[in-house]
Write a protein that binds this DNA or RNA. Sequence first.
DNA 1: ATAAAGCCTGTAGCTACTACAGGGTCAAGT
DNA 2: ACTTGACCCTGTAGTAGCTACAGGCTTTAT
Lengths: 138, 138
Amino acid sequence: MAGTIREFRIGELSKRTGVNIETIRYYEKIGVMPNPPRTPAGYRGYREIHLNRLRFIRRCRQLGFSMNEIHALLTLVDANRYSCSEVQALTLRHAEMVSNKIRDLKQLENGLRGIASQCTGEQVPDCPIIDTLLEPGK
Amino acid sequence: MAGTIREFRIGELSKRTGVNIETIRYYEKIGVMPNPPRTPAGYRGYREIHLNRLRFIRRCRQLGFSMNEIHALLTLVDANRYSCSEVQALTLRHAEMVSNKIRDLKQLENGLRGIASQCTGEQVPDCPIIDTLLEPGK
DNA sequence: ATAAAGCCTGTAGCTACTACAGGGTCAAGT
DNA sequence: ACTTGACCCTGTAGTAGCTACAGGCTTTAT
């Protein structure tokens, strides 16, 4: 019983991870997922190890890591010579980028609400938003 | 003197707006910038009107509007039958999207800092971040 | 006269996928 | 045995919003 390793197809991998089939094949092409063994008919045969790896990737994506960053993480993991501090550094660097983006978006939102608040909201063809956007000056 | 309309080339338009040359031609191709008149040699000839329009577009982009949204705004402006309330609605709709994005990114940042805080930061090859990412469960 | 700077078109590349087209394979039902 | 439908395969093209050439013409300055 122990030792019985069940293989499954890409469709099952897709359903169990929530990553869609084309995306899995794409991950294989760009090298973040390994080339799995094939059946005689050419079907990909996956195992638990692939499931874990794909979940790892999916979680990283949900955390907003780029494929490059994920690649870096996986390289560390694959080499089995990653150190906690390296991974932490990568993570915090990414968190910095995220908080910068938040800051930018907040400014942007303020800008938008600011110009929108100047509108009367009436049905007149003369709008402070448009006027603002058309103003000269770089 | 008044009435002397100076034409200028794409390079000058680019410098005065901060939008680069290829992007200007791209905007022309997708129809947000008009086809300008050409010199006999085929050079594009721009005037103040183009400058204003391009600045409008650039500002919209800085405010995070998609090209589709900009297209919609410009169509309203071009038809000269826009109403302030339409423009305001479009702007507020966009502001909503921005604040949603901010909310998502904040969650994301919390997630990242949360897992990073579990690290010792030491040079050991065993990392709670990696462990977390490798955990089973969809 | 020539060299440099500027312009032209058109195509390919970037991210991270998604959506086909056109085909092969497999298991179940008749 | 045969057919149907679900599944899988490869490869290409599309998405957004640009950017970066390649290869060639024009204009300007020396």
